[in-house]
């Protein structure tokens, strides 16, 4: 039984048909990656799952229950959390306040809140040094860590990561992906959207290749990285 499932999802921006019948599934405990070029519909898929966009056709199911009719603030409560594209941290809130907002659906008196906070600050020690700094003053890498940490604060069952490597130095990209694997090993299912297909297929169990709003291929990460077409188009091999 899939934890998260998309069935024939069609999403539009006005008249632009962005997703043309996407079907995919994410099982409990997996890291699944969506790869594809600019404009393929990767972020649109995540925005549809989170409820920021609603599909005109098709269904999004969490544990076999439809969620595509719910507003996004209700979807978070069901255990889906997103670290959005471009990080989108709150620039004029402090690091700690950003994390607090991540835990908005939980009471601050909840004893688990403390533990969540410590867990995130253990995952990202750089954030611990900067808790009282404003989010907008962080470097790009630190902002990415904050965005992921903030998404973890809601204690999600499934974490949606949108381009966590974007704009980061290679050494930071390695570090972020190692942490993504750690988070998964601690029990969080992950749906990872990436343009950096090489890195993404390196950490994922399975993957889907998106092109112009449709799924082109789906296979285990290992097979995908050996697929000739994928190698040519997304891994830069001849």
């Amino acid at each position: 039984m899939a934890l998260l499932e998309l069935q024939n999802v069609h999403t539009f921006y006005g008249n632009i048909h962005a997703l043309k019948g996407i079907s995919l599934a994410v099982n409990e405990g997996e890291i699944v990656t969506l790869i594809g070029s600019n404009g393929a519909g990767k972020s649109t898929t995540l925005r549809t799952i989170s409820g920021l966009l609603s599909p005109r056709q098709g269904q999004v199911l969490l544990n076999e229950k439809r969620i595509d009719t719910l507003p996004s603030h209700e979807i978070v409560k069901l255990g889906i959390s997103q670290s959005p594209e471009g990080r989108r941290i709150f620039p004029r809130l402090t690091v700690l306040e950003n994390l607090e907002m991540g835990a908005y659906i939980h009471s601050r008196r909840d004893p688990q809140y403390r533990a969540d906070l410590e867990r995130v600050l253990d995952l990202f020690p750089r954030l611990r040094e900067r808790v009282s700094q404003k989010g907008g003053t962080l470097s790009g890498g630190e902002q990415q860590m904050l965005a992921i940490g903030r998404a973890l604060m809601s204690r999600p069952r499934i974490l949606l990561l949108d381009e966590p490597s974007m704009g980061l130095a290679p050494i930071l990209v390695d570090q972020i992906f190692r942490i993504v694997q750690d988070i998964n090993k601690q029990g969080t299912t992950i749906l990872l959207v990436e343009q950096n297909a090489l890195m993404a297929l390196g950490v994922a169990h399975r993957g889907y290749v998106l092109q112009t709003g449709q799924i082109l291929l789906s296979d285990s990460a290992k097979s995908l990285s050996q697929n000739e077409m994928v190698q040519k188009a997304y891994l830069g091999m001849d």
Partner: peptide, 13 residues
Amino acid sequence: QDRPTASLMGINV
């Protein structure tokens, strides 16, 4: 500061 992201936090905008 950011309405869509606030709703991703579970805030009823």
